[in-house]
């Protein structure tokens, strides 16, 4: 019995220690004045591999999710004769919940796992150690640009997901099922508020971006320097960041849209 309690205590302490370690890691990566000349070039390279390469999957899934919402929403709303509220349904569910969460999950799978694997391999092949040897800080040179690229990309990808999703809903509702176009947009505009809904949705995307890139980069940096270690770290990145995103989403929704 006492052994079990001791085990629980040990794992709790281990978790807290690891959490603090990752906080210090984040702090040392981002602390200090960046070198604008070399930093910008490194950042642009990372923005390309984290942001631009994720664009295709975001656009395609955004369009299809918007189309499905349009189709399902139409079937249900037409039972009550309120199919004109379709624009409102599609836009609000996308802007508030679906866009940030689905973008974050896709981002964790597409970009987060790639970050972990890349950094893990650098560690396994001792590139990071040799960098330190010649006096280059790997936290500043390797980790920081990747973190910042993730922070910048996620809100942009969220906005793009939203826009393509609304367009998908418009395609199905107006172009295919023949809703009146004016009512579709007018209902949407009267119920979606820019400050309350759109900006909060994008803020959600930004916070998810911080969580995912932080987890991904930390897991890569702390991975066992073996091929098995890299695979474990990549799996952990996807699992941890998906769970974190879903749990954070509940808390953020309660804070932003909850009425209490």
């Amino acid at each position: 019995m006492l052994d079990r309690v001791q085990q629980l205590g040990a794992s709790t302490l281990g978790f807290i220690q690891r959490f603090g370690h990752s906080g210090i890691f984040l702090f040392y990566s981002l602390w200090g004045i960046p070198n604008l000349k070399t930093g910008t070039a490194l950042l642009i390279k990372q923005l390309y591999s984290v942001g631009v390469l994720s664009l295709v999957i975001i656009v395609v899934s955004g369009t299809f999710i918007g189309m499905v919402l349009g189709l399902q929403g139409y079937t249900i709303l037409s039972d009550f004769g309120t199919e004109n509220a379709l624009g409102q349904l599609v836009a609000l569910s996308l802007v508030r919940e679906l866009a940030p969460v689905v973008t974050a999950l896709l981002f964790a799978g597409r970009a987060g796992s790639a970050l972990t694997a890349e950094i893990g391999l650098m560690k396994a092949t001792e590139q990071l150690a040799s960098m330190e040897m010649i006096g280059v800080d790997p936290l500043r040179r390797i980790i920081a640009p990747r973190l910042i690229a993730g922070f910048i990309s996620m809100p942009i990808l969220t906005a793009i997901f939203c826009a393509t999703g609304v367009w998908g809903g418009y395609l199905v509702g107006v172009e295919w099922l023949g809703l009146y176009e004016g009512a579709f947009w007018a209902n949407m505009q009267s119920s979606v508020s820019f400050e309350h809904d759109v900006l909060n949705g994008i803020l959600k995307g930004f916070i998810f971006g911080i969580a995912i890139t932080w987890i991904a980069v930390f897991q890569g940096y702390e991975s066992e320097p073996t091929s098995e270690g890299i695979s474990v770290a990549t799996t952990k990145t996807v699992v941890y960041s998906s769970l974190t995103v879903l749990a954070l989403d509940f808390i953020l929704t309660a804070m932003m849209f909850g009425e209490f």
Partner: peptide, 27 residues
């Protein structure tokens, strides 16, 4: 090329945000 594509991403983001502002929320 990489710089051009990143610039494209930024423009796409700005376009998406302005669509959300004017077309979706009717600001």
């Amino acid at each position: 090329w990489i710089e051009t594509l990143v610039g494209g991403l930024m423009i796409a983001g700005a376009l998406a945000l302005s669509m959300l502002a004017f077309k979706v929320s009717g600001i």
